[in-house]
Simulated scan of single mutants.
Amino acid sequence: MKYTGCWPVVPTPFHDDGTLDLEGMKRVLDCTIDMGVDGICILANFSEQFLISDEERATLTKLCVEHVAGRVPVIVTISAYATPIVVERAQFAKDLGADIVMMMPPYHGALMKGTAEQTFEQFRQVGEVGIPIMLQDAPLSGVDLPVPLLVKMAREIEMLKLFKIECPQAAAKLRTLIADGGNAIEAPFDGEEAITLLADLDAGATGCMTSAMIPDQIRPIVVDFLAGERKKAIDGYARVLPAINHENRQCGFRSAKHAMQVGGVIKSAFCRHPIAPLHPDTASMLIELIEPLDPLVLNWGK
């Protein structure tokens, strides 16, 4: 499999009463696939995984893998502090037919952080399940993942193939990771809504994991850059950057849900407590910034 292009995280839609909107979930998947993406990630932080019960996780995993039905690869996020739970989630995803699992290192709250040895061992055990793994290096975990540790993991854990780097100074880390890891780093990816995409591509990233708001506008930047069309990619990035900046700095995971509600993809942009709804002015500016891009999300459901 070629790991390149744009692999967005899809949001989890809820009804206004906070219950899962399973039909809306199918529409989210269909809309995202219609954006021409290279893969889809579910149950990640931008899917509000920390607000979803274990039973709901199982329901969503099964629904998403079955509904996508091989149209694009599906990445299932399986992060948890307890290694047996992560392994169980990996096996469940594999049994359902998922293509990849994504996981952060073990952490719980601000103080319980996995050591290098604990992180390595958790990924090693998941690797034994026999499904490709994407490591997510995100500030949320608070776990330090130095390049030598990542290179060791890549070389010694056969199924660890993808690396989503979205820590501070991501481009510098990507550049060193690729230089030191060589062929063991099969898929160096950019994250964090593509707020650092251009620098990360310049550092050697082969793909990105954005939100599901405007991946149809972001994917061409990756394609152009990898094809050597540097000026075209830079111009394309300049075009979308105001929207990406507003999403990253002001809206977070609420952005894709709001855009999908406005575009008729889902009926509600509800987020479970304690997440507050977007301020009306913030939400209005989001649409103001993405409308000139004519993204599919604003037209798909109309």
Rank of each mutant, 00 (worst) to 15 (best):
M1T: 02
G5Q: 01
C6I: 11
P8G: 04
T12M: 11
T12H: 08
P13S: 12
L22C: 06
K26T: 02
K26F: 04
D30H: 10
I33E: 03
M35P: 04
V37C: 13
C41V: 10
A44F: 00
N45G: 09
L51F: 10
L51C: 11
D54T: 12
E55I: 10
R57T: 09
R57Y: 15
R57D: 13
L60S: 07
T61W: 05
T61M: 14
L63F: 11
C64Y: 05
H67L: 13
H67R: 13
H67P: 13
V74E: 03
V76R: 02
A80C: 00
P84Q: 08
P84I: 03
V87H: 03
E88I: 04
E88F: 02
A90V: 09
Q91F: 01
Q91V: 13
Q91Y: 07
A93D: 00
A93Q: 03
K94Q: 15
K94I: 11
D95L: 07
L96S: 09
A98C: 12
M102F: 11
M102C: 11
M104V: 12
P105D: 02
P106C: 06
Y107V: 00
H108V: 08
A110N: 14
E121G: 09
Q122P: 02
Q125T: 07
V126P: 02
G127K: 00
V129K: 01
G130A: 12
G130H: 09
I131Y: 06
P132Q: 06
I133W: 04
I133R: 02
M134P: 03
S141F: 07
D144L: 06
P146L: 12
P148E: 05
L150W: 05
V151E: 09
I157F: 08
L160W: 05
F163L: 07
C167E: 14
P168R: 09
T176V: 14
D180T: 02
G182H: 03
E186I: 01
A187I: 03
F189G: 05
D190P: 02
E193N: 10
E193R: 07
I195V: 13
I195W: 08
I195F: 14
A199K: 06
L201I: 08
L201N: 06
L201V: 10
D202V: 04
G207E: 03
T210E: 09
Q217H: 08
V223F: 04
V223R: 13
F225P: 01
R230C: 08
K231Q: 14
K231E: 15
K231G: 00
A233C: 09
A233R: 06
G236N: 06
Y237I: 02
A238N: 15
I244L: 15
I244S: 11
I244F: 12
N248G: 12
N248C: 15
R254Q: 13
S255F: 12
A256M: 11
K257F: 01
Q261G: 00
G263A: 10
G263S: 14
I266E: 02
H273L: 13
H273Q: 12
H279S: 11
H279A: 15
D281A: 15
L286I: 03
I287E: 09
E291F: 06
L293S: 05
D294G: 04
D294M: 05
D294K: 15
N299T: 14
W300R: 10
